[in-house]
């Protein structure tokens, strides 16, 4: 083993440890704010793995989009809905956890078996390394042009849809009633519209 390969191995082990512990923390921690920050750590570690795989462009996109946008959005959502609430205990919770854990372990065993048994044609062709960014650009504007344009339309639709869904309705009557515009936009205590009309 040369020093380069052992460095690569050490980097992989450190990053995979961060990913495993961080993902367990995301799922298992009680405080949702801690989970959100653990999720940011997992995203950063995955970006490090992309760097280890010679994909600097995708690593940068991962950091920008996931850590910079998605994680911040999740933290904003946590702050907007952050109300301490006592979750009502439901019956059969332990049984549900055990059954779903068994299903997930079964899925994990299946995936591990596939990954180990399948004869991958290794070593594959030589990777191109740092030319990957230019090659991604060529792909995006030649043979993946249609998905690229559709992705832009999808992002536009998602943006408009998110604005429409998350907007708080300010009725004309509230504004005409003499309230200042800013007063009308201050978050008031929400009136529950649909709370448990049919609950027994």
């Amino acid at each position: 083993m040369t020093i380069a390969t052992s460095t690569e191995l050490i980097c992989f082990l450190v990053l995979s440890t961060v990913i495993v512990l961080g993902s367990l923390g995301v799922v298992l921690l009680e405080n949702i704010v801690y989970s959100a920050f653990m999720l940011g750590g997992v995203f950063m570690a995955v970006a490090g793995l992309y760097l280890l795989l010679n994909a600097s462009f995708v690593a940068a996109a991962q950091v920008l989009v996931y850590v910079g946008a998605v994680n911040v959005l999740i933290i904003f959502a946590i702050m907007l809905v952050n109300k301490r609430e006592e979750l009502k205990p439901i019956k059969g919770l332990r049984l549900r956890r055990i059954v779903s854990g068994a299903v997930c372990i079964g899925l994990l065993v299946l995936l591990v078996r596939v990954a180990i048994i399948t004869p991958w044609p290794l070593p594959g062709p030589i990777a191109i390394g740092e030319e990957a960014t230019a090659r991604i650009g060529e792909h995006l504007f030649t043979d993946y042009l249609l998905p690229f344009e559709l992705a832009s339309v999808l992002l536009l639709m998602a943006m408009i849809g998110a604005i429409v869904l998350a907007r708080r309705d300010v009725y004309d009557s509230e504004l005409l009633a003499g309230d200042d515009m800013k007063e009308g936009l201050i978050e008031q205590t929400p009136t529950p519209l649909l709370v448990d009309k049919s609950s027994p």
């Binding site: 995708v58 996109a61 991962q62 989009v65 996931y66 946008a69 998605v70 959005l73 999740i74 904003f76 959502a77 992705a151 999808l154 992002l155 639709m157 998602a158 943006m159 849809g161 998110a162 604005i163 429409v164 869904l165 998350a166």
Partner: peptide, 14 residues
């Protein structure tokens, strides 16, 4: 990554 960003935005809005 693009689709995931769109999904996160719409999901959190919902």
């Amino acid at each position: 990554i693009t689709v995931a960003a769109a999904e996160a935005a719409v999901g959190l809005a919902i």
